[in-house]
Amino acid sequence: MAQLLDPALIEREGTTAPISEIARFLSDHLGAQATAYVAGVKGAAQVAKWIEGGTPPKGQMTRLRLRDAYRAARLLVTAYDEATAEAWFFGSNSRLDDEAPAWVLRHARSLDDLRMVVPAAKAFARARA
């Protein structure tokens, strides 16, 4: 059984890591197209630019979406595996009014829109422990 990483460590990493590292983790574990989707951008080419350290995301909401997606993905990949994390991101979630977490992230327009994604991931990851 996989171990749950310390949520405080994951929170710190999600806050302090450069966007290039955040994008790389998401791309490696969820795929570049899924990373682009949750970030709210058109395609994987933009994600590749972020990973290469090129132009960072323009908008604050894009960066916040990526950081919250990282926190959730890191929890789930650690507690379960990549396949489960991907299924969680794109499946209906009762803690998010039956919306998929990826959809919630992509359509977030404010901090308030993002506030339940990471707690939903924590609850799902804790269920594994």
Rank of each mutant, 00 (worst) to 15 (best):
M1G: 06
L9C: 04
E11D: 10
T15E: 12
T15Y: 09
T16G: 01
I19V: 14
S20A: 14
S20R: 15
E21D: 15
S27F: 05
L30W: 07
G31D: 03
T35R: 07
A36L: 08
V41W: 00
A48L: 07
I51L: 06
G53P: 11
G59E: 12
Q60I: 14
M61E: 04
R63P: 05
L66H: 06
L66Q: 02
L66S: 02
D68N: 14
A69V: 08
Y70W: 10
Y70H: 06
R71S: 05
A73D: 08
D81P: 03
E82T: 15
A83E: 13
T84A: 11
A85S: 14
A87S: 12
G91Y: 02
E99L: 13
E99F: 12
A100R: 13
A102E: 09
V104R: 15
L105K: 14
A108Y: 09
R109A: 12
R109G: 13
S110N: 10
D113C: 09
L114Y: 09
M116L: 12
V117H: 06
V117S: 03
V118E: 07
P119T: 00
A120C: 06
K122P: 00
K122S: 02
A123Q: 05
A123Y: 01
F124W: 09
A125C: 10
A127T: 12
